[in-house]
Design a binder for these strands. Sequence first.
DNA 1: TGTCCGATATCCT
DNA 2: GGATATCGGACAT
Length: 189
Amino acid sequence: MKRLKRSFFVRPTLKVARELLGKFLVRKIKKEKLLGKIVETEAYIGPEDKASHASGGRITKRCQIVYSNGGRVYIYLCYGIHWMLNIVTAPKDKPECVLIRALESLGKEEKLKKIASGPGKLCNWLNLDKSFYGEDLAKSKRIWLEDKGVKIKKSQIISAERIGIDYAGAWANRLWRFYIKDNNFVSRK
DNA sequence: TGTCCGATATCCT
DNA sequence: GGATATCGGACAT
């Protein structure tokens, strides 16, 4: 079992966003473990990034955790319904993070249902909510990331425009969404 | 493929 | 107090 350590997250955000593809998100609920392979991510790189909650150097109660050292969870409610799971990256005081947009879940049944093919859906599946705000992925006993030796070649990584951030003007078309080519569990191609 | 809209914490004026 | 948001399911077209 190779849990990703803090050093993995405290690196340039675009690098982390790409390298998260193929890693496994592990969620432990009581004695049960839910596992999903990360197949889609998006980078948010403030304070320049207009699409980031930390745009312009804003420090609000909601987004203050993205200013912390890499490796923590940034989670918030969107549209009044959906929780969004982000992983804080980069060193302390740099407001950068990666949104986890889709997982390929293990197990036949889940596969058929595409139960985690979207940022809101995966949080619902893994039962993630406000109580995970600030959770330390390097230490937590209920959520962490593992490297299971899956290698994603550079040629298999597609870069695309981020989703749902039209309000961010020119920043909306930066190619900061990454997903695994031909993977059926990506939220949108 | 497109349009509609839920349901609410958080941010801003 | 008002506007808005890193979506997703439903139903029409």
